[in-house]
Design a protein around this nucleic acid. Structure first.
Lengths: 203, 203
DNA sequence: GACATATTCATACATACGTATGAATGATTC
DNA sequence: GAATCATTCATACGTATGTATGAATATGTC
């Protein structure tokens, strides 16, 4: 009678969607349970509390994100190519709640949820590893890999949410695939200039 | 008997601090009025509603930010030098609530407060202007000024909040002034590599 | 089919929220 | 100094929140 997957699964899916879009505070347990066609008590019963559900969501969403991340990092190709692939993924992938959630949590003084910290460290470590690799083979210029990793990730993270600004300035319209391509080209270009020892700048 | 400035002022100051640190949802009217040593009704009376107060806060915080921004942009020096000055300011300035508030609002699907959109457009337009200037005199490489402006601002915005991540990876500890300097040097370096037609990369 | 366990469900509880209200006090004007 | 206005104050209202409770039902086990 309910939607196919079991309650825990439905709650996780709905909660992931809502938390990513609205933030923890703006989403009520009633929002989640009603959309998941579950009883109000279901969150308490299956997860213990709203916050525990939130952490479970981060864990799951983060796992998906980190897997995409790591799998692209393990692909064949030069370090720079793999970095570009990751950045493109983070910038363009639909239904990628992780970056938004990370940004929102970072933009608070309240303590960061532990699973979120783990997620960020893991991904930054992956990125820093690629950068170190490139530095060893001479294709990536010197600099602290950790800081460079943050600078690299800053691009797709910010341009992703930044496309919400109605900008004559940048003329960004996320829906349009042409614009999408232009964005990717721009960001990959910036990454190249930032990292490469042989920047192919055209001016 | 109250703190010196008048109620409206105290409410604005306290609200700016709290909203910046915790976010709109996490701050209650009671939090604000009690800390401002004002009556519970004061927000309604002086501003009309909590949301109106929020918008007033954005307006004020944004005005301060935009002024710092514009004043640094109008300083003497090459476009790149002025861009570096702005970026350093955004990265290091204490009590600069605007970047955090902007990031948090961007990381939501809910409509952006109008004053915040105005603020972002104004600052990005200023930055894009500097970039155009540098492109005309040949010191800054080609590319859409609007997109480049976003990429430039992404650095201090993200590294600012990013310093909350306990990172062995990056070894960032905001308190330490040595680290602060290292951060500034890094970010200015990245900006140079991203924009300059004569990158002074040391490798 | 009886029992035990797991899950669902409706409802209750205590608390917190934003805002409204109306009386009390303060300041200003003539 | 009476009258008018602006502000402060305590309190009330309605609603929403997260969680707890205990009965009802489903599921699994022997």
């Amino acid at each position: 009678m309910n939607d196919s997957p079991d309650v825990t699964e439905r709650l996780l899916a709905v909660a992931a969607d809502l938390f990513a879009r609205e933030g923890f505070d703006a989403v009520s347990v009633r929002d989640i349970t009603s959309r998941a066609k579950a009883n109000l008590g279901a969150v308490t019963y299956h997860f213990g509390s709203k916050e525990a559900l939130f952490h479970a969501v981060i864990e799951r969403v983060g796992a998906g994100f980190a897997d995409r991340f790591a799998s692209l990092a393990a692909q064949p190709g030069t370090p720079l190519e793999r970095i570009a692939a990751i950045v493109t993924m983070v910038l363009t992938e639909r239904d990628l709640p992780a970056p938004t959630m990370i940004l929102r949590e970072l933009a608070t003084d309240r303590p960061l949820p532990a699973p979120l910290v783990r997620l960020m460290r893991r991904n930054l470590e992956t990125m820093a590893g690629l950068i170190r690799e490139g530095q060893h083979d001479g294709s990536i210029s010197k600099g602290e890999p950790g800081l460079l990793a943050m600078s690299v990730m800053a691009q797709p993270f910010l341009l992703r949410v930044g496309s919400r600004i109605p900008l004559d300035v940048a003329g960004v319209d996320r829906a349009d695939p042409k614009t999408q391509q232009r964005l990717v080209k721009h960001v990959v270009g910036i990454i190249h200039r930032s990292l490469s020892t042989h920047p192919q700048g055209r001016s």
